[in-house]
Design a protein around this nucleic acid. Structure first.
Lengths: 244, 244
DNA sequence: GTGCAGAAATTGGTTGGACCATTGGACCAC
DNA sequence: GTGGTCCAATGGTCCAACCAATTTCTGCAC
């Protein structure tokens, strides 16, 4: 017998029911991100549940980043919601050791290369112009501040993800933003971390503009490789300077 | 002025404090996944907060999959926790339309190819033996039932992710399990969905066993390509049969 | 002693009501 | 306008109880 033909009955799912009702409400009212939801007290009264139950439900949504609560002001929608949403609560063990950072780079390598290739295939002229704009900003920031800028660099890559034609890339990588950016916060003491990656930003752009997926993929891989090299340099340095 | 020089102050974070204390408790008691946490009432008393606050905190952890609550029994640890955990609550718009499924496959293609390549580089002999075992099970299931088996197929791929030497792959893909498996639940009406992918499971294994990263990557890409073809077949069929 | 049914205790789930802290607008004096 | 004060609205916390599922204990029949 198929296990799925007899799912466990749901005896109690009060807060789930609240969320379901809330999805319906958002749809019915066509609420956009940024707009305010009804107050907890009103929700409790309308749904005939206690305010605590409403709060547990909203806490779950808040944890998923769907909603933001501001004391004294209200509860605000932060993202679009729909009934067929898929939640991927992914919690990773952190750490700024060499191994963790290297593992992060392997994920980024996989996603970045694919996104660059897809982008070269599909990006519209407007997308490419936008990427060029971000590239200019980044290069200028590099020259004036004489070093990689985390913010501008990120925006450049983000533009590529967005132009890949697959919103999942942008969403996944945005969720991993914090993970990726631990490099710039704790670059293992490497001076000029990321310097070597600078020229490849332009070469990636050129391959994309030339509609060359394999070329774009190759340049993206080169960029990641320089970052990995910086990482290894930092790790070697650490090993020399101190032993814990 | 730099926007970051005046960050908003943190006024109150009762439930965050509860979670922080709980992390300390788990560490101090060396609790393993599966073990039971103190009851909500005890936590409330010990931490000098109300049970409601404890519940909000635990609700957050439950949403992150770190903890499981069983009424009448207790709250159980589901995963290792540490103070430097990174949360990636990723919610994706669902949908079983062709576009959504295709986008999912592009993510899988990126991760699967990279994982297969890394696996070919790093897998231990024991890892390879385990992959071979899963492959045998899957192939036998295929023959007896004359069709791809979602469960056994998944275990085979999971073994590869695990042997990639990078736990992030397994974690990310496990979180996306539901996303990937909508293919088998709603294969767009394609009979024998996934049939064409069958032979590539063995070729992937062979390239891994031969320590051939590029070969493993290529075979993984071929496997994904067959699934994408099935998908396109299904989409074309749908287009013919009905117009919404 | 063993086995088992039922009572009792334990534990998460829910309720209702209260009060606090923050917010944001209304209003006012200057 | 500017700045200050007040006040209602709103999320945050607390308390005390009860409900529902689960586990544990008890005592009886054998």
């Amino acid at each position: 017998m198929d296990q799925n033909s007899l799912p466990p009955i749901q005896t109690s799912a009060r807060d789930d029911a609240v969320l379901k009702a809330l999805v319906g409400f958002v749809r019915a009212e066509a609420l956009q991100p940024g707009e305010r939801l009804p107050t907890e007290r009103i929700l409790a009264e309308r749904l005939k549940v206690s305010r605590n139950t409403v709060r547990e439900a909203l806490t779950r949504w808040e944890g998923l980043g769907l909603v933001e609560r501001r004391q004294g002001s209200g509860t605000y929608l932060k993202a679009a919601v729909s009934h067929d949403m898929l939640h991927m609560p992914l919690t990773l063990a952190g750490g700024n050791d060499f191994t963790s950072l290297m593992q992060t780079m392997e994920i980024r390598r996989a996603l970045e290369a694919e996104a660059a290739a897809l982008c070269a295939e599909r990006a519209s002229q407007a997308d490419i112009a936008e990427i060029a704009r971000k590239l200019d900003i980044m290069e200028q920031a590099f020259r004036t501040r004489d070093g990689m800028s985390s913010e501008e660099d990120w925006e450049f890559h983000q533009a590529i993800y967005r132009a890949s034609g697959n919103p999942l890339f942008e969403q996944i990588i945005a969720a991993m933003y914090e993970l990726f950016h631990r490099f710039w916060e704790h670059p293992l003491g490497v001076r000029d971390f990321g310097h070597a990656s600078f020229p490849y930003h332009r070469t990636i752009y050129e391959r994309i503009a030339a509609r060359d997926p394999q070329g774009a993929r190759a340049e993206a891989l080169k960029l990641i490789a320089t970052v990995e090299d910086d990482l290894k340099r930092g790790a070697a340095k650490l090993k020399l300077s101190s032993q814990t």
